[in-house]
Design a protein around this nucleic acid. Structure first.
Lengths: 221, 221
DNA sequence: CACGAACCTGAACTCTTTCTGAAAATCCGG
DNA sequence: CCGGATTTTCAGAAAGAGTTCAGGTTCGTG
């Protein structure tokens, strides 16, 4: 679940990032408007967090440029407390939500989850495929036979990706992009390793291999 | 993999086409806006390349008309170098990417592949001939009796080629060109070997041999 | 009708990709 | 700084895809 955080205060950015990563996101940080525009257009994020005050330009311009170039992921803007104007302009420019500084990271996470769910057209925070149900709040997998398994961060992100689109083939490269940000680039064998662990939970048939193409979550029970 | 190329410079159009065909696309050319609108609406293309300067109308109007009549395939527009305005208007009108003239055909191919990949998630792209349906996302073949077979990379590329133009005879040399690049040049018997594998799936009658000419996918059920 | 060319067929071979189990490295709370 | 949980790497085994081969069959032509 990749996010882009645009925030010029480096210390604050680091703080937010470390908490977001604990919550299971993979975060790219940028401090400038220019880089933000490029990253947003080129990388495949699931959401963006945008501070409006940037050294080299207005955050709203970043947002407008994204929207005019078909960047569709949901964006949450950070505004100074009580700055009504910024909020209205932001929503006009295509933002999906806003949050006044200062804020609790918990609230940021909650709101991010909300706009991401909304953008996917879902309401429930659980993904159900066949006899499996993935609980996004508790980060655990329930199986129809009553058993329940809690997942580690990486296990969860990978499984959510696969279960989010049952029957669709994800290449190893795509999965790498979803799990890791630009800085991290572990051995591609890591995907195989995690696929193996997930199979121990869901059974070997449930996650199928398409040799040379990738992996898919079987939607047939 | 059918494309529509809208370009009024006939010489340029021919040149681009021959290279695109080498890259495995099957290209229809048109030189007028009027014909472009009709073809785009009636035929089932996987992508379009649209030059903005046309003798009988503006390319952007073609694009707008397509989009308003539910033509969803991704479109790449060709603009004059540095014409910022065209680019922005194009993206607003529903283009998926743009390329400034003059360009390298390699770049055109790379961008086409990119926008097609991006649009894959949204559009369910399948080729249907008789009682067979080839799913290009999942790289598998569905038959009317309900069975489904996943294909290996080479099987898929060969079958897509044949099914992309049912009834048309492809020579072994042409098929070789579709499946392999200049560096690879395996024994020509490889085509026979794969044809045999495909026949085991679709039945011996469905892929006919024209001795001395090539193979074709039978249009009639 | 006989002959060669083109095509078919099944199996064997090679090479790449994936699986697997375990060990090493890293992270994190106490 | 320690110990457990988690992540990452590694290397050999297994499986699968791609390719070749050798011999058989069919077809068209002279």
């Amino acid at each position: 679940m990749r996010l882009l955080l645009v925030e010029d205060d480096r210390l604050l950015a680091e703080g937010i990032t470390s908490q977001l990563e604990k919550a299971g996101f993979s975060v790219d940080i940028t401090h400038t408007a220019k880089e933000a525009v490029i990253l947003g257009e080129q990388e495949d994020y699931k959401a963006g967090v945008l501070d409006l005050g940037l050294p080299d330009g207005n955050g709203l311009d970043v947002l407008r440029q994204w929207r005019s170039s078909k960047v569709t992921f949901p964006v949450l803007i950070l505004t100074a407390r009580g700055d009504w104007q910024d909020k209205v302009n932001g929503l006009k420019a295509g933002a999906d939500d806003y949050l006044a500084k200062p804020f609790q990271t918990e609230e940021l996470i909650a709101r991010l989850n909300a706009i991401m769910r909304r953008s996917e057209g879902r309401v429930h925070s659980t993904v159900k495929v066949g006899r499996f149900e993935l609980d996004e709040n508790r980060q655990c997998l329930q199986i129809e036979d009553g058993t329940e398994h809690s997942l580690t961060g990486t296990e969860f992100r990978l499984l959510r990706c696969l279960m989010g689109r049952p029957g669709h083939i994800f290449s190893k490269e795509q999965l790498m992009e979803q799990l890791y940000n630009l800085n991290e680039s572990p051995n591609e064998n890591i995907i195989e390793a995690y696929i193996r662990r997930l199979r121990k939970l869901v059974g070997p048939e449930t996650i199928a291999t398409r040799r040379g193409q990738g992996y898919l979550f079987n939607d047939a029970v």
